[in-house]
């Protein structure tokens, strides 16, 4: 709670709402995993989703780019609106949604290909680059934005899986950035990393906020306090409380939130 979150760049209501979500319900077969969640995501803010294991925060995150589609038994109801467009509407192409809403996963999962190929894959399938020089430019720009360029610029043709854990995760971030998404979802991106690598990723998240809207799921409340401007607390499939990170951590309204952030449960 050292307040880094509010400092570097602008925050507040003069930023438009990027995503508005109303009455989001998720069912896994018979199981009601997410119960009527209303949560707004403000542009160029970092929104942290916190809560104990199994509370539905990852499930909610995966609704935002329709990754839940890959689970056969999963059913989503309610409204998830990206820039005025319901992403679950029939006429929406899921491939386009995932290009606009990128994702970084819990475990670094670079493709077992070269570093260059990892970053170039997204632009290539979406046809974002005309010709090799343009693609090179996108790759180097993305790696620079992900803060990895200086470490790998002389070995772009080496295997991405040969990097250290923290580097792999930044490579995954670079890979997501290369598609030029509007929103980046991060599902516990630091849980498999050591503190130094974690610090680097956190710095990076704050930097990325200038250009992207970020939603991050985290188990670490310190991390939520450090990197986010908005925090949402989930519990047993319900969105218990949501608001400014400062407020949530210093003056929570709900006693469940208070109990969780003070370590009484969870």
């Amino acid at each position: 709670m050292n307040g880094n979150g509010n400092g570097a760049h602008g925050v507040g209501v003069n930023f438009p709402l990027k995503m508005t979500n109303r009455k989001v319900n998720v069912f896994y077969g018979e199981k009601h995993a997410l119960k009527g969640v209303d949560l707004d995501v403000r542009a160029n803010h970092v929104t942290a989703l916190i809560g104990p294991s199994g509370c539905g925060k990852s499930t909610f995150l995966r609704c935002l780019n329709r990754m839940n589609d890959t689970i056969a038994s999963c059913r989503v109801t309610g409204e998830i609106v990206l820039d005025g467009q319901d992403i679950y509407a029939k006429e929406i192409d899921v491939v386009q949604i995932r290009a606009r809403v990128g994702m970084v996963f819990q475990k670094p999962n670079p493709f077992p290909k070269s570093i260059y190929e990892n970053v170039a894959y997204g632009p290539r399938i979406h046809g974002l680059a005309r010709g090799k020089p343009e693609l090179d430019e996108i790759v180097s720009h993305s790696l620079k934005q992900a803060g990895l360029w200086n470490e790998v610029n002389d070995r772009l043709d080496e295997q991405g899986t040969g990097l250290s854990g923290g580097q792999q995760q930044r490579l995954c971030i670079a890979r997501a950035i290369a598609v030029q998404p509007e929103v980046i979802l991060m599902d516990e991106p630091c849980s498999a990393l050591d503190p130094i690598a974690t610090a680097k990723i956190e710095e990076l998240i704050d930097e990325l906020r200038k250009h992207y809207t970020i939603v991050i799921v985290t188990h670490s409340m310190q991390q939520a306090a450090r990197v986010s401007q908005r925090t949402a607390f989930f519990h047993l499939g319900n969105l218990v409380e949501e608001g400014d990170t400062q407020t949530i951590f210093t003056n929570p309204k709900d006693e469940r939130t208070q109990g969780y952030i003070t370590g009484r449960f969870g």
């Binding site: 890959t70 386009q96 949604i97 995932r98 994702m103 997204g122 995954c172």
Partner: peptide
């Protein structure tokens, strides 16, 4: 082939067929 590879490709906006042909099948 680990599911994380499929998720990575799908998360980038690759279609199901692209995911299979570009990543799963070669591996």
């Amino acid at each position: 082939v680990p599911p994380s590879i499929r998720e990575a490709a799908l998360g980038l906006g690759a279609s199901k067929v692209q995911t299979v042909l570009h990543h799963v099948l070669p591996l």
